Simulated scan of single mutants.
Amino acid sequence: MRSVRDFLAGVGFFFQGVGWVARNGRWWLFGLIPALIAFAVYVVALVFLGTNATDLAEFLTPFADTWGWRDTFRAMVGVALFLGGLALAVLTFTALTLAIGEPFYEKLSGTVDPVDGDEEQPWWRTLPRSIKDSLVTLGFVLMFTVPLFFLGFIPVVGQTVVPVLGAAISGFFLTVELTTLALERRGMARKQRFALLRGSKPAALGFGVAVFVLFLVPFVAVLAMPAAVAGAALLVRTRLAPGAEAPRVHT
């Protein structure tokens, strides 16, 4: 029962982030800029993938040339490729948006979650480390999601168990990405951040799964990104960070 309560509490932190940006509209608009840029990049990439999915499926399945049902099989592969691209877009949207909007989201997160003695570093110093950490996180995500992609072709299991596991894994790593800003302000390196989130897995899953599900809806990811950053800062401040204080609302 405690795990369920912690999971629901994690979901609640996202909605607290929504409430924070609703009360601080200028920060919501401020946080939309990098999200819109990243969204435009992904729209172009997904449109390209969608219009070329059939040709790509044919290129990847030369062994099916003699099959009587090759067109149906390749159509299924094409759909799977597009869905895989969509899932990858959801998984990497946060990392790309945070990389593009490092100065934006650092200020937003710092306003939600001020840390005593924190000295703001120039974005050009923190960006290389952020990109490196995002690539490492992406490597972990692919290590889990690539096998799940192929398991998705198994009847019944691929349509029930696999999507749930995929949402849980993706949600956890979205939380990893989104809490990076707040945890780095507390001097935590990547290994420390991972250990902290593994120790609070139900709450991390609740927050991340809520974000992941919303990010599956076109354009909602853009609108929700500032709230996700704010919610992650509140999650760190009130639940994850040692000696956390109650959050102070800044207007």
Score class of each variant (00 low, 15 high):
4 V>K: 11
7 F>R: 07
9 A>Q: 12
14 F>Y: 12
16 Q>E: 08
20 W>C: 01
21 V>R: 06
21 V>Y: 07
21 V>L: 09
27 W>C: 09
31 G>E: 01
36 L>S: 11
38 A>V: 15
40 A>C: 11
44 V>R: 06
48 F>V: 14
49 L>K: 01
50 G>D: 03
52 N>K: 13
53 A>K: 04
53 A>M: 04
53 A>N: 04
56 L>R: 06
60 L>T: 13
60 L>H: 11
63 F>M: 13
68 G>E: 04
78 G>A: 14
85 G>W: 02
86 L>I: 06
87 A>R: 13
87 A>M: 14
91 L>K: 05
92 T>E: 14
95 A>C: 01
103 P>N: 00
103 P>C: 00
106 E>D: 07
118 D>K: 06
118 D>M: 08
119 E>F: 06
122 P>W: 08
128 P>N: 09
128 P>I: 08
129 R>W: 12
129 R>D: 12
132 K>T: 15
135 L>R: 13
136 V>R: 14
137 T>I: 11
139 G>V: 05
142 L>M: 15
143 M>I: 15
152 G>Q: 03
161 V>R: 04
166 G>E: 03
171 G>P: 11
185 R>C: 04
187 G>T: 05
187 G>S: 03
200 S>A: 10
203 A>N: 03
213 V>T: 10
215 F>N: 05
217 V>N: 10
219 F>D: 12
219 F>Q: 07
222 V>S: 03
237 R>S: 09
238 T>I: 02
242 P>I: 03
243 G>R: 09
245 E>R: 15
248 R>T: 10
249 V>K: 10
251 T>Q: 09
